[in-house]
Design a protein around this nucleic acid. Sequence first.
DNA 1: TGTACATCAGTGAACGCGCGTTCACTGATGTAC
DNA 2: TGTACATCAGTGAACGCGCGTTCACTGATGTAC
Lengths: 215, 215
Amino acid sequence: MAAPGTKTPRERYRAQVRAEVKEHAWEQVATAGASALSLNAIAKRMGMSGPALYRYFASRDELMTELITDAYRSLADTFSAAAGSGADLAGLAHVLRGWALEDPHRYFLIYGTPVPGYHAPSDVTMIASEIMEVLLDACAALPADRPESPLDTHLADHRQWAGEHPAPPAVLHRALIVWSRLHGVLSLELAGQFQGMDFDPALLYAAELDDLLAR
Amino acid sequence: MAAPGTKTPRERYRAQVRAEVKEHAWEQVATAGASALSLNAIAKRMGMSGPALYRYFASRDELMTELITDAYRSLADTFSAAAGSGADLAGLAHVLRGWALEDPHRYFLIYGTPVPGYHAPSDVTMIASEIMEVLLDACAALPADRPESPLDTHLADHRQWAGEHPAPPAVLHRALIVWSRLHGVLSLELAGQFQGMDFDPALLYAAELDDLLAR
DNA sequence: TGTACATCAGTGAACGCGCGTTCACTGATGTAC
DNA sequence: TGTACATCAGTGAACGCGCGTTCACTGATGTAC
Protein backbone atom coordinates (compact mmCIF):
# COMPACT_ATOMS: atom_id res chain seq x y z
CA MET A 1 0.00 0.00 0.00
CA ALA A 2 1.35 3.39 -1.01
CA ALA A 3 1.69 6.09 1.60
CA PRO A 4 -1.21 8.52 1.51
CA GLY A 5 -0.54 11.48 -0.73
CA THR A 6 2.00 9.54 -2.74
CA LYS A 7 1.15 8.77 -6.35
CA THR A 8 1.52 5.29 -7.67
CA PRO A 9 2.91 4.98 -11.20
CA ARG A 10 -0.59 4.21 -12.43
CA GLU A 11 -2.01 7.31 -10.83
CA ARG A 12 0.77 9.34 -12.36
CA TYR A 13 0.03 7.87 -15.76
CA ARG A 14 -3.66 8.57 -15.40
CA ALA A 15 -2.97 12.18 -14.47
CA GLN A 16 -0.71 12.58 -17.44
CA VAL A 17 -3.21 11.20 -19.93
CA ARG A 18 -5.97 13.34 -18.44
CA ALA A 19 -3.75 16.38 -18.88
CA GLU A 20 -3.01 15.45 -22.47
CA VAL A 21 -6.69 15.04 -23.19
CA LYS A 22 -7.33 18.49 -21.80
CA GLU A 23 -4.59 19.98 -23.91
CA HIS A 24 -6.21 18.63 -27.03
CA ALA A 25 -9.56 19.77 -25.73
CA TRP A 26 -8.33 23.35 -25.46
CA GLU A 27 -6.93 23.16 -28.92
CA GLN A 28 -10.29 22.02 -30.16
CA VAL A 29 -12.16 24.75 -28.31
CA ALA A 30 -9.83 27.31 -29.83
CA THR A 31 -10.23 25.91 -33.32
CA ALA A 32 -13.91 25.17 -33.52
CA GLY A 33 -15.56 26.62 -30.44
CA ALA A 34 -16.70 25.14 -27.19
CA SER A 35 -19.73 23.45 -28.64
CA ALA A 36 -17.54 21.45 -30.98
CA LEU A 37 -15.76 19.74 -28.11
CA SER A 38 -15.69 16.03 -28.94
CA LEU A 39 -14.22 13.07 -27.11
CA ASN A 40 -14.02 11.03 -30.30
CA ALA A 41 -12.09 13.71 -32.14
CA ILE A 42 -9.68 14.11 -29.24
CA ALA A 43 -9.10 10.39 -29.07
CA LYS A 44 -8.35 10.28 -32.77
CA ARG A 45 -5.77 13.04 -32.43
CA MET A 46 -4.13 11.17 -29.58
CA GLY A 47 -3.95 8.03 -31.67
CA MET A 48 -6.43 6.19 -29.51
CA SER A 49 -9.84 4.76 -30.07
CA GLY A 50 -12.86 6.77 -28.93
CA PRO A 51 -14.08 4.68 -26.02
CA ALA A 52 -10.61 4.69 -24.46
CA LEU A 53 -11.17 8.16 -23.08
CA TYR A 54 -14.08 6.95 -21.01
CA ARG A 55 -11.46 5.57 -18.66
CA TYR A 56 -10.52 9.16 -17.93
CA PHE A 57 -13.71 11.16 -18.26
CA ALA A 58 -17.16 9.87 -17.48
CA SER A 59 -18.72 11.91 -20.25
CA ARG A 60 -18.26 14.81 -22.60
CA ASP A 61 -19.97 17.01 -20.06
CA GLU A 62 -17.47 16.12 -17.37
CA LEU A 63 -14.62 17.18 -19.62
CA MET A 64 -16.43 20.41 -20.40
CA THR A 65 -16.94 21.11 -16.73
CA GLU A 66 -13.30 20.40 -16.07
CA LEU A 67 -12.24 22.90 -18.70
CA ILE A 68 -14.45 25.61 -17.28
CA THR A 69 -13.31 24.93 -13.73
CA ASP A 70 -9.69 25.01 -14.84
CA ALA A 71 -10.24 28.31 -16.58
CA TYR A 72 -11.70 29.84 -13.43
CA ARG A 73 -8.96 28.33 -11.32
CA SER A 74 -6.30 29.75 -13.61
CA LEU A 75 -7.72 33.25 -13.43
CA ALA A 76 -8.18 33.09 -9.67
CA ASP A 77 -4.60 31.91 -9.20
CA THR A 78 -3.24 34.55 -11.52
CA PHE A 79 -5.16 37.19 -9.62
CA SER A 80 -4.16 35.93 -6.20
CA ALA A 81 -0.52 35.68 -7.21
CA ALA A 82 -0.52 39.24 -8.51
CA ALA A 83 -2.21 40.56 -5.40
CA GLY A 84 0.17 38.54 -3.29
CA SER A 85 3.14 40.23 -4.84
CA GLY A 86 1.73 43.64 -4.18
CA ALA A 87 -0.21 44.46 -7.32
CA ASP A 88 -2.75 47.25 -6.94
CA LEU A 89 -5.87 47.72 -9.07
CA ALA A 90 -3.80 48.87 -12.04
CA GLY A 91 -1.63 45.80 -11.67
CA LEU A 92 -4.64 43.52 -11.55
CA ALA A 93 -6.11 45.13 -14.65
CA HIS A 94 -2.84 44.61 -16.46
CA VAL A 95 -2.66 41.01 -15.36
CA LEU A 96 -6.26 40.44 -16.42
CA ARG A 97 -5.63 41.71 -19.90
CA GLY A 98 -2.54 39.57 -20.25
CA TRP A 99 -4.42 36.52 -19.07
CA ALA A 100 -7.26 37.18 -21.50
CA LEU A 101 -5.06 37.81 -24.54
CA GLU A 102 -3.01 34.74 -23.74
CA ASP A 103 -5.98 32.56 -24.56
CA PRO A 104 -9.13 34.34 -25.70
CA HIS A 105 -11.17 31.14 -25.82
CA ARG A 106 -10.44 30.50 -22.18
CA TYR A 107 -11.72 33.98 -21.41
CA PHE A 108 -14.89 33.38 -23.40
CA LEU A 109 -15.44 30.04 -21.75
CA ILE A 110 -15.94 32.00 -18.55
CA TYR A 111 -17.36 35.32 -19.69
CA GLY A 112 -18.69 34.59 -23.15
CA THR A 113 -22.07 33.62 -24.47
CA PRO A 114 -23.48 31.02 -22.12
CA VAL A 115 -24.05 27.58 -23.62
CA PRO A 116 -27.79 26.99 -23.32
CA GLY A 117 -28.66 23.97 -21.28
CA TYR A 118 -25.29 23.77 -19.65
CA HIS A 119 -25.22 24.54 -15.95
CA ALA A 120 -21.98 25.38 -14.21
CA PRO A 121 -21.13 23.35 -11.12
CA SER A 122 -21.16 24.98 -7.71
CA ASP A 123 -17.39 24.71 -7.72
CA VAL A 124 -16.99 27.71 -9.95
CA THR A 125 -19.23 29.88 -7.80
CA MET A 126 -16.67 29.48 -5.06
CA ILE A 127 -13.79 30.36 -7.34
CA ALA A 128 -15.72 33.32 -8.72
CA SER A 129 -16.11 34.81 -5.26
CA GLU A 130 -12.42 34.22 -4.67
CA ILE A 131 -11.74 36.41 -7.69
CA MET A 132 -14.25 38.98 -6.53
CA GLU A 133 -12.58 39.17 -3.16
CA VAL A 134 -9.22 40.03 -4.67
CA LEU A 135 -10.92 42.71 -6.72
CA LEU A 136 -12.71 44.10 -3.69
CA ASP A 137 -9.47 44.28 -1.74
CA ALA A 138 -7.82 46.24 -4.50
CA CYS A 139 -10.77 48.61 -4.74
CA ALA A 140 -10.86 49.12 -1.00
CA ALA A 141 -7.25 50.24 -1.08
CA LEU A 142 -8.09 53.20 -3.29
CA PRO A 143 -9.06 56.65 -2.01
CA ALA A 144 -12.73 57.30 -2.54
CA ASP A 145 -14.60 60.54 -2.05
CA ARG A 146 -17.54 60.55 -4.35
CA PRO A 147 -21.08 61.67 -3.73
CA GLU A 148 -23.32 58.74 -2.95
CA SER A 149 -25.20 57.52 -6.01
CA PRO A 150 -28.55 55.69 -6.07
CA LEU A 151 -26.61 52.54 -6.85
CA ASP A 152 -24.56 53.01 -3.67
CA THR A 153 -27.63 53.12 -1.46
CA HIS A 154 -29.03 50.11 -3.28
CA LEU A 155 -25.79 48.21 -2.74
CA ALA A 156 -25.84 49.00 0.96
CA ASP A 157 -28.79 46.64 1.16
CA HIS A 158 -27.71 44.18 -1.53
CA ARG A 159 -24.21 43.22 -0.63
CA GLN A 160 -24.56 39.51 0.00
CA TRP A 161 -22.39 38.79 -3.04
CA ALA A 162 -19.45 40.49 -1.36
CA GLY A 163 -19.44 37.81 1.32
CA GLU A 164 -17.79 38.86 4.57
CA HIS A 165 -15.93 41.68 2.93
CA PRO A 166 -16.30 44.84 5.03
CA ALA A 167 -16.08 47.20 2.07
CA PRO A 168 -18.50 50.15 2.10
CA PRO A 169 -21.04 50.49 -0.72
CA ALA A 170 -18.86 52.89 -2.66
CA VAL A 171 -16.19 50.21 -2.87
CA LEU A 172 -18.70 47.59 -3.98
CA HIS A 173 -19.85 50.03 -6.62
CA ARG A 174 -16.34 50.57 -7.79
CA ALA A 175 -15.62 46.86 -7.98
CA LEU A 176 -18.68 46.38 -10.17
CA ILE A 177 -17.74 49.10 -12.61
CA VAL A 178 -14.12 47.98 -12.73
CA TRP A 179 -15.34 44.54 -13.64
CA SER A 180 -17.88 45.63 -16.22
CA ARG A 181 -15.74 48.30 -17.84
CA LEU A 182 -12.66 46.17 -18.21
CA HIS A 183 -14.81 43.33 -19.45
CA GLY A 184 -16.52 45.70 -21.85
CA VAL A 185 -13.30 46.65 -23.60
CA LEU A 186 -11.74 43.20 -23.38
CA SER A 187 -14.69 41.26 -24.70
CA LEU A 188 -15.23 43.60 -27.64
CA GLU A 189 -11.55 43.41 -28.45
CA LEU A 190 -11.31 39.63 -28.16
CA ALA A 191 -14.49 39.16 -30.15
CA GLY A 192 -12.92 41.15 -32.95
CA GLN A 193 -15.43 43.99 -32.82
CA PHE A 194 -12.63 46.52 -33.13
CA GLN A 195 -11.24 44.85 -36.19
CA GLY A 196 -11.25 47.22 -39.09
CA MET A 197 -11.30 50.18 -36.74
CA ASP A 198 -7.58 50.72 -36.69
CA PHE A 199 -7.17 52.29 -33.28
CA ASP A 200 -5.26 50.49 -30.57
CA PRO A 201 -7.54 48.70 -28.07
CA ALA A 202 -4.73 48.73 -25.51
CA LEU A 203 -5.02 52.49 -25.33
CA LEU A 204 -8.76 52.32 -24.80
CA TYR A 205 -8.19 49.80 -22.04
CA ALA A 206 -5.57 52.05 -20.47
CA ALA A 207 -7.84 55.09 -20.73
CA GLU A 208 -10.65 53.23 -19.02
CA LEU A 209 -8.31 52.10 -16.29
CA ASP A 210 -7.02 55.64 -15.77
CA ASP A 211 -10.55 56.87 -15.50
CA LEU A 212 -11.28 54.26 -12.86
CA LEU A 213 -8.19 55.15 -10.86
CA ALA A 214 -8.88 58.88 -11.00
CA ARG A 215 -12.41 58.49 -9.77
CA MET B 1 -45.71 39.79 -66.47
CA ALA B 2 -46.17 41.42 -63.10
CA ALA B 3 -45.37 45.09 -62.68
CA PRO B 4 -41.92 45.63 -61.19
CA GLY B 5 -42.06 45.89 -57.45
CA THR B 6 -45.28 43.94 -57.27
CA LYS B 7 -45.17 40.51 -55.71
CA THR B 8 -46.69 37.54 -57.43
CA PRO B 9 -48.56 35.08 -55.20
CA ARG B 10 -45.62 32.71 -55.48
CA GLU B 11 -43.18 35.37 -54.35
CA ARG B 12 -45.44 36.19 -51.46
CA TYR B 13 -45.58 32.55 -50.50
CA ARG B 14 -41.82 32.21 -50.70
CA ALA B 15 -41.34 35.23 -48.48
CA GLN B 16 -43.78 33.86 -45.97
CA VAL B 17 -42.12 30.46 -45.74
CA ARG B 18 -38.69 32.05 -45.45
CA ALA B 19 -40.00 34.16 -42.59
CA GLU B 20 -41.46 31.11 -40.90
CA VAL B 21 -38.17 29.28 -41.23
CA LYS B 22 -36.38 32.18 -39.63
CA GLU B 23 -38.85 32.25 -36.77
CA HIS B 24 -38.12 28.63 -36.00
CA ALA B 25 -34.43 29.34 -36.43
CA TRP B 26 -34.54 32.01 -33.75
CA GLU B 27 -36.39 29.69 -31.46
CA GLN B 28 -33.68 27.13 -31.99
CA VAL B 29 -30.89 29.60 -31.37
CA ALA B 30 -32.57 30.63 -28.14
CA THR B 31 -33.06 27.06 -27.02
CA ALA B 32 -29.80 25.42 -27.93
CA GLY B 33 -27.40 28.10 -29.05
CA ALA B 34 -26.33 29.36 -32.43
CA SER B 35 -24.09 26.40 -33.18
CA ALA B 36 -27.09 24.08 -32.88
CA LEU B 37 -28.86 25.73 -35.78
CA SER B 38 -30.09 22.94 -38.03
CA LEU B 39 -32.09 22.99 -41.23
CA ASN B 40 -33.30 19.46 -40.70
CA ALA B 41 -34.62 20.19 -37.24
CA ILE B 42 -36.42 23.30 -38.46
CA ALA B 43 -37.99 21.39 -41.33
CA LYS B 44 -39.24 18.75 -38.94
CA ARG B 45 -40.87 21.36 -36.72
CA MET B 46 -42.55 22.88 -39.73
CA GLY B 47 -43.90 19.51 -40.74
CA MET B 48 -41.77 19.34 -43.86
CA SER B 49 -39.01 17.11 -45.03
CA GLY B 50 -35.44 18.29 -44.66
CA PRO B 51 -34.47 18.91 -48.26
CA ALA B 52 -37.56 21.08 -48.79
CA LEU B 53 -35.86 24.01 -47.13
CA TYR B 54 -33.16 24.03 -49.76
CA ARG B 55 -35.71 25.75 -51.96
CA TYR B 56 -35.49 28.67 -49.57
CA PHE B 57 -31.94 28.71 -48.29
CA ALA B 58 -28.94 27.54 -50.23
CA SER B 59 -27.26 26.19 -47.12
CA ARG B 60 -27.19 26.27 -43.37
CA ASP B 61 -24.58 29.00 -43.58
CA GLU B 62 -26.83 31.22 -45.63
CA LEU B 63 -29.55 30.96 -43.02
CA MET B 64 -27.02 31.76 -40.32
CA THR B 65 -25.83 34.80 -42.22
CA GLU B 66 -29.41 35.91 -42.69
CA LEU B 67 -30.05 35.71 -38.96
CA ILE B 68 -26.98 37.76 -38.16
CA THR B 69 -27.78 40.36 -40.77
CA ASP B 70 -31.35 40.62 -39.52
CA ALA B 71 -30.10 41.10 -35.99
CA TYR B 72 -27.85 43.96 -37.06
CA ARG B 73 -30.61 45.43 -39.20
CA SER B 74 -33.01 45.31 -36.28
CA LEU B 75 -30.64 47.12 -33.96
CA ALA B 76 -29.74 49.72 -36.57
CA ASP B 77 -33.41 50.42 -37.28
CA THR B 78 -34.26 50.62 -33.61
CA PHE B 79 -31.41 53.06 -33.11
CA SER B 80 -32.26 55.19 -36.13
CA ALA B 81 -35.91 55.32 -35.17
CA ALA B 82 -35.04 56.43 -31.65
CA ALA B 83 -32.64 59.08 -32.90
CA GLY B 84 -35.20 60.16 -35.47
CA SER B 85 -37.74 60.85 -32.78
CA GLY B 86 -35.32 62.97 -30.84
CA ALA B 87 -33.66 60.52 -28.47
CA ASP B 88 -30.41 61.74 -26.96
CA LEU B 89 -27.62 59.53 -25.65
CA ALA B 90 -29.62 58.57 -22.60
CA GLY B 91 -32.52 57.66 -24.83
CA LEU B 92 -30.32 55.51 -27.05
CA ALA B 93 -28.88 53.74 -24.04
CA HIS B 94 -32.38 53.00 -22.81
CA VAL B 95 -33.45 51.74 -26.20
CA LEU B 96 -30.35 49.57 -26.44
CA ARG B 97 -31.04 47.87 -23.15
CA GLY B 98 -34.63 47.23 -24.10
CA TRP B 99 -33.58 45.78 -27.41
CA ALA B 100 -31.03 43.52 -25.74
CA LEU B 101 -33.35 42.25 -23.02
CA GLU B 102 -36.07 41.61 -25.55
CA ASP B 103 -33.99 38.84 -27.06
CA PRO B 104 -30.65 38.12 -25.43
CA HIS B 105 -29.66 35.56 -28.03
CA ARG B 106 -30.06 38.10 -30.77
CA TYR B 107 -27.73 40.38 -28.82
CA PHE B 108 -25.17 37.63 -28.41
CA LEU B 109 -25.38 36.71 -32.06
CA ILE B 110 -23.90 40.15 -32.73
CA TYR B 111 -21.75 40.84 -29.70
CA GLY B 112 -21.18 37.43 -28.18
CA THR B 113 -18.43 34.86 -28.52
CA PRO B 114 -17.52 34.68 -32.18
CA VAL B 115 -18.17 31.37 -33.88
CA PRO B 116 -14.74 30.18 -35.03
CA GLY B 117 -14.51 29.69 -38.73
CA TYR B 118 -17.56 31.77 -39.46
CA HIS B 119 -16.89 35.02 -41.25
CA ALA B 120 -19.49 37.76 -41.32
CA PRO B 121 -20.44 39.12 -44.73
CA SER B 122 -19.50 42.67 -45.72
CA ASP B 123 -23.16 43.57 -45.39
CA VAL B 124 -22.98 43.78 -41.64
CA THR B 125 -19.95 46.02 -41.70
CA MET B 126 -22.12 48.59 -43.42
CA ILE B 127 -24.90 48.24 -40.90
CA ALA B 128 -22.41 48.39 -38.05
CA SER B 129 -21.14 51.76 -39.21
CA GLU B 130 -24.72 52.92 -39.53
CA ILE B 131 -25.14 52.15 -35.84
CA MET B 132 -21.87 53.81 -35.00
CA GLU B 133 -22.93 56.94 -36.82
CA VAL B 134 -26.07 57.30 -34.73
CA LEU B 135 -23.96 56.84 -31.64
CA LEU B 136 -21.44 59.43 -32.80
CA ASP B 137 -24.18 61.94 -33.47
CA ALA B 138 -25.56 61.49 -29.99
CA CYS B 139 -22.11 61.86 -28.47
CA ALA B 140 -21.35 64.96 -30.50
CA ALA B 141 -24.48 66.62 -29.12
CA LEU B 142 -23.12 66.45 -25.59
CA PRO B 143 -21.04 69.16 -23.96
CA ALA B 144 -17.42 68.12 -23.66
CA ASP B 145 -14.66 69.86 -21.78
CA ARG B 146 -12.19 67.27 -20.70
CA PRO B 147 -8.42 67.36 -20.74
CA GLU B 148 -7.06 65.55 -23.76
CA SER B 149 -6.04 61.99 -22.96
CA PRO B 150 -3.40 59.90 -24.74
CA LEU B 151 -6.25 57.99 -26.34
CA ASP B 152 -7.62 61.25 -27.76
CA THR B 153 -4.39 62.09 -29.52
CA HIS B 154 -4.19 58.52 -30.79
CA LEU B 155 -7.73 58.75 -32.13
CA ALA B 156 -6.96 61.98 -33.95
CA ASP B 157 -4.81 59.88 -36.26
CA HIS B 158 -6.92 56.71 -36.20
CA ARG B 159 -10.41 57.84 -37.01
CA GLN B 160 -11.06 56.03 -40.25
CA TRP B 161 -13.73 53.93 -38.54
CA ALA B 162 -15.79 57.08 -37.94
CA GLY B 163 -16.21 57.51 -41.69
CA GLU B 164 -17.00 61.04 -42.77
CA HIS B 165 -18.20 62.01 -39.34
CA PRO B 166 -16.66 65.35 -38.38
CA ALA B 167 -16.55 64.59 -34.64
CA PRO B 168 -13.41 65.67 -32.80
CA PRO B 169 -11.27 63.02 -31.06
CA ALA B 170 -12.92 63.63 -27.70
CA VAL B 171 -16.25 62.65 -29.21
CA LEU B 172 -14.78 59.54 -30.80
CA HIS B 173 -13.35 58.67 -27.43
CA ARG B 174 -16.68 59.11 -25.78
CA ALA B 175 -18.46 57.00 -28.35
CA LEU B 176 -16.01 54.18 -27.72
CA ILE B 177 -16.44 54.24 -23.97
CA VAL B 178 -20.20 54.52 -24.23
CA TRP B 179 -20.18 51.45 -26.40
CA SER B 180 -17.80 49.42 -24.26
CA ARG B 181 -19.29 50.40 -20.90
CA LEU B 182 -22.87 49.75 -21.85
CA HIS B 183 -21.83 46.52 -23.48
CA GLY B 184 -19.85 45.62 -20.38
CA VAL B 185 -22.86 45.81 -18.09
CA LEU B 186 -25.30 44.38 -20.62
CA SER B 187 -23.25 41.39 -21.62
CA LEU B 188 -22.46 40.41 -18.04
CA GLU B 189 -26.11 40.74 -17.16
CA LEU B 190 -27.41 38.79 -20.16
CA ALA B 191 -24.80 36.10 -19.64
CA GLY B 192 -26.10 35.63 -16.14
CA GLN B 193 -22.88 36.69 -14.44
CA PHE B 194 -24.84 38.77 -11.96
CA GLN B 195 -27.06 35.87 -11.03
CA GLY B 196 -26.79 35.09 -7.37
CA MET B 197 -25.54 38.61 -6.67
CA ASP B 198 -28.89 40.05 -5.78
CA PHE B 199 -28.35 43.68 -6.76
CA ASP B 200 -30.31 45.20 -9.62
CA PRO B 201 -28.34 45.34 -12.88
CA ALA B 202 -30.64 48.08 -14.15
CA LEU B 203 -29.24 50.38 -11.47
CA LEU B 204 -25.69 49.59 -12.46
CA TYR B 205 -26.57 50.32 -16.05
CA ALA B 206 -28.19 53.60 -15.01
CA ALA B 207 -25.20 54.54 -12.88
CA GLU B 208 -22.83 53.91 -15.77
CA LEU B 209 -25.00 55.97 -18.04
CA ASP B 210 -25.13 58.84 -15.55
CA ASP B 211 -21.39 58.75 -15.29
CA LEU B 212 -21.09 58.98 -19.05
CA LEU B 213 -23.49 61.89 -19.26
CA ALA B 214 -21.78 63.80 -16.45
CA ARG B 215 -18.36 63.49 -18.01
C1' DT C 1 12.33 -15.19 -7.02
C1' DG C 2 8.40 -17.24 -8.86
C1' DT C 3 3.68 -18.15 -9.38
C1' DA C 4 -1.47 -16.98 -9.15
C1' DC C 5 -4.49 -13.60 -9.22
C1' DA C 6 -6.67 -8.98 -9.53
C1' DT C 7 -6.65 -4.63 -11.59
C1' DC C 8 -6.77 -1.66 -15.17
C1' DA C 9 -5.81 0.47 -20.14
C1' DG C 10 -7.19 0.16 -24.50
C1' DT C 11 -9.59 -2.13 -28.64
C1' DG C 12 -13.17 -3.05 -32.02
C1' DA C 13 -17.83 -3.79 -32.90
C1' DA C 14 -22.12 -2.07 -32.32
C1' DC C 15 -26.40 1.01 -31.43
C1' DG C 16 -29.02 4.87 -32.45
C1' DC C 17 -28.88 9.31 -33.62
C1' DG C 18 -28.79 13.66 -36.32
C1' DC C 19 -26.48 16.35 -39.49
C1' DG C 20 -25.80 18.74 -44.43
C1' DT C 21 -26.56 17.96 -48.88
C1' DT C 22 -27.67 15.79 -53.68
C1' DC C 23 -30.84 13.74 -56.77
C1' DA C 24 -34.60 11.87 -59.38
C1' DC C 25 -39.16 12.25 -59.09
C1' DT C 26 -44.46 13.63 -58.31
C1' DG C 27 -47.93 16.86 -58.23
C1' DA C 28 -49.64 21.29 -57.99
C1' DT C 29 -49.62 26.07 -59.66
C1' DG C 30 -49.10 29.43 -62.97
C1' DT C 31 -48.51 31.07 -68.11
C1' DA C 32 -49.25 31.39 -73.25
C1' DC C 33 -51.90 30.83 -77.00
C1' DT D 1 -62.72 28.82 -71.88
C1' DG D 2 -59.73 25.23 -72.80
C1' DT D 3 -55.58 23.04 -73.78
C1' DA D 4 -50.30 22.54 -73.75
C1' DC D 5 -46.51 23.63 -71.55
C1' DA D 6 -43.21 25.48 -68.14
C1' DT D 7 -42.25 26.49 -63.55
C1' DC D 8 -41.77 25.49 -59.02
C1' DA D 9 -42.71 23.22 -54.10
C1' DG D 10 -42.09 19.35 -51.72
C1' DT D 11 -41.01 14.20 -51.14
C1' DG D 12 -38.32 10.08 -50.16
C1' DA D 13 -34.23 7.66 -50.80
C1' DA D 14 -29.59 7.89 -50.46
C1' DC D 15 -24.53 9.16 -49.26
C1' DG D 16 -21.09 9.91 -46.04
C1' DC D 17 -20.13 11.69 -41.90
C1' DG D 18 -19.35 12.25 -36.89
C1' DC D 19 -21.22 12.08 -32.53
C1' DG D 20 -21.83 9.96 -27.44
C1' DT D 21 -21.92 5.90 -25.27
C1' DT D 22 -22.13 0.68 -24.03
C1' DC D 23 -20.12 -3.76 -24.02
C1' DA D 24 -17.44 -7.91 -24.28
C1' DC D 25 -12.97 -8.77 -24.79
C1' DT D 26 -7.43 -8.87 -24.93
C1' DG D 27 -3.23 -7.89 -23.02
C1' DA D 28 -0.31 -5.58 -20.05
C1' DT D 29 0.76 -3.99 -15.36
C1' DG D 30 0.77 -4.36 -10.62
C1' DT D 31 -0.08 -7.12 -6.02
C1' DA D 32 -0.02 -11.06 -2.58
C1' DC D 33 1.83 -15.00 -0.95
